[in-house]
Nucleic acid binder design. Structure first.
Lengths: 135, 135
DNA sequence: GACTACTCTATTATATCTATAGGATAGATT
DNA sequence: AATCTATCCTATAGATATAATAGAGTAGTC
């Protein structure tokens, strides 16, 4: 299952991407329009800022805004930041590889074989899709 | 992440599929060879029997065995039984569809758009892969 | 009839996700 | 400078799902 964190994060990103001008948008506005708990959204936007997707402005008229163009934000990086590894098992992960301790030979492992294909097909989708494609 | 239940279930299925004769295999044997907690494996094999993948024989010389040919067991059905819905969000699920209560229009939803593609690509992999392909 | 191995229910442990609370901090406005 | 506003940050609690264990019960085989 997709976590709510990722779901909300994606919705917030598209909300910001669909803004005509580049004025900062307040958390409260996004929260209200996308039906997201404001406090929860707060922490999500915070991680998106820390990971270089968003900029923020404090004080009156402040809020969050996209740093890059939507077409320059691939889903691979969004998913990795919000959801974690794209692979469903660590032994087929590109960025978070870990050996299974119960598995003597990865190349003979059925789970590895299957999940390698799943990873590849998911990666293909995430790589070719940018935030701009979701508007 | 893939649950251990699914992981162990897949390993057990391939173990059974790789048997030369069709004699029942005891839980203890699978558990030992695949490094799986015996009791946990017990419950997994039980659900695989109840869902029509395995047959069992009680008493001495008993155990579990595959009912169908490995080539006739698609991953779609295995995953659905062990892991649950293939879709990552209910609003794009074929067999477990559910409307999001926070989303006014699915067709305009970014999460829906993205996850629809992910579902399709995963489905394609699971459909073309049978247990026989994992041996 | 004894042995073996599956069957089933209940319980515990663990982890992760989701959400909330409350205050601290920094910038804008007057 | 004072005040308002909105982000920033940490801590924590509750809910849920997963993972694993325990132990008694049942049914078939030899």
């Amino acid at each position: 299952m997709l976590s709510k964190k990722t779901k909300y994060g994606l919705k917030a990103l598209t909300y910001l991407a669909s803004q005509k001008n580049k004025q900062p948008v307040q958390i409260a506005e996004i929260s209200k329009n996308e039906n997201i708990s404001q406090k929860f959204l707060e922490s999500i936007l915070l991680t998106l800022r820390k990971t270089g997707f968003l900029g923020s402005k404090k004080g009156k008229g402040g809020g969050y805004y996209l740093i890059k163009q939507p077409s320059e934000i691939p889903m691979t990086s969004v998913i990795r930041v919000l959801e974690g590894p794209i692979a469903m098992v660590p032994c087929v992960s590109l960025n978070f590889y870990e050996k299974c301790n119960d598995c003597p030979d990865e190349k003979k492992c059925a789970v590895n074989k299957l999940m390698l294909q799943i990873r590849d097909s998911n990666l293909e989708v995430y790589r070719r899709t940018t935030l701009a494609d979701l508007l």
